[in-house]
Design a binder for these strands. Structure first.
Length: 260
DNA sequence: ATGGCTGCAGGATGCAGA
């Protein structure tokens, strides 16, 4: 079972790129972020034509998450619990059955948080606290799950080409990195780091200032896996080809391969 | 550079992103 996470930066602007990539990589499940589309305006047909079921949680203009799956999506739930006043669509979860097991899949778009010292950074930290609470609940239920998404967190120096350039940024703040470690210390596994401990592996390159050409990238798109999901992990991959295609997103897909 | 692109809403530019 191949599961991908990809911030596509606008589903309508990315239709050709996205369908080309799906045909090429053949993931079974895709956690998608920054769809920037109301659910009723989401172009579902091109994805359904490729064999995917879709569960959507979006809004006109900003944010928006989705799960695409060749297997049926059950128990779909939208929104991260813990704040009824939060109307930003950044979280959707569903359960898929495979073999004789069930796997819960969450697609998240964690708040960016810039600039530091503003309400936006506070919102990021509060959102992470809600994700910690959700994770505790799911771990207590002792089920296999994974969280795929744009975490907007650079975990450590290996994950940026120029770490010093990010010291004042919400993505690399001590509070952001500490929150990441809290998730890890609850018992979650950073899928990529179980298979590769080297620096120089990135999932995002800014559109500006020739970041892609200079390989000025950061690793901010991740899969965190519960213990029983991590037991199934066979391989990971970052498909950086896609950043060099026409009309690319500024993020590329990250994938995990699970032994079914 | 002083955020140098890009997508979106809307129908001009301003906002958001990271």
């Amino acid at each position: 079972m191949r599961i991908a996470t990809w911030n596509i930066n606008g589903v309508k602007a990315r239709l050709d790129t996205a369908t080309n990539w799906l045909r090429s990589a053949q993931p079974d499940i895709v956690c998608m972020q920054e769809t920037k589309s109301a659910d009723e305006a989401f172009p579902t047909e091109p994805f359904e034509d490729l064999g995917y079921n879709l569960s959507l949680h979006g809004k006109k203009g900003f944010n928006g998450v989705a799960i695409l799956s060749k297997l049926p999506l059950e128990d779909v739930s939208r929104g991260l619990p813990g704040d009824d006043t939060d109307d930003q669509p950044r979280f959707i979860e569903a359960v898929v059955s495979f073999g004789d097991a069930a796997l819960r899949v969450a697609s998240i778009y964690l708040p960016n948080g810039n600039p530091v010292g503003t309400e936006k950074f506070d919102y990021k930290l509060r959102w992470i606290e809600r994700l910690v609470a959700w994770t505790r609940t799911r771990l207590a239920a002792d089920e296999a799950f994974l969280i795929g998404g744009d975490f907007n967190i650079i975990p450590d120096e290996r994950d940026a080409r120029f770490p010093e350039a990010w010291t004042g940024d919400a993505l690399f703040q001590p509070e952001s990195r500490h929150a990441w470690r809290r998730l890890i210390n609850l018992g979650l596994t950073d899928a990529f780091r179980t298979t590769n401990s080297a620096d120089g592996h990135y999932t995002f390159w800014d559109y500006q200032a020739g970041a892609w050409q200079k390989n000025n990238g950061i690793r901010i798109d991740h899969f965190l896996m519960s213990p029983s999901a991590a037991d199934l992990l066979a391989a990971t991959a970052i498909d950086k080809r896609v950043r060099g295609w026409d009309k690319p997103s500024d993020h590329v897909p990250m994938m995990v391969e699970l032994a079914a």
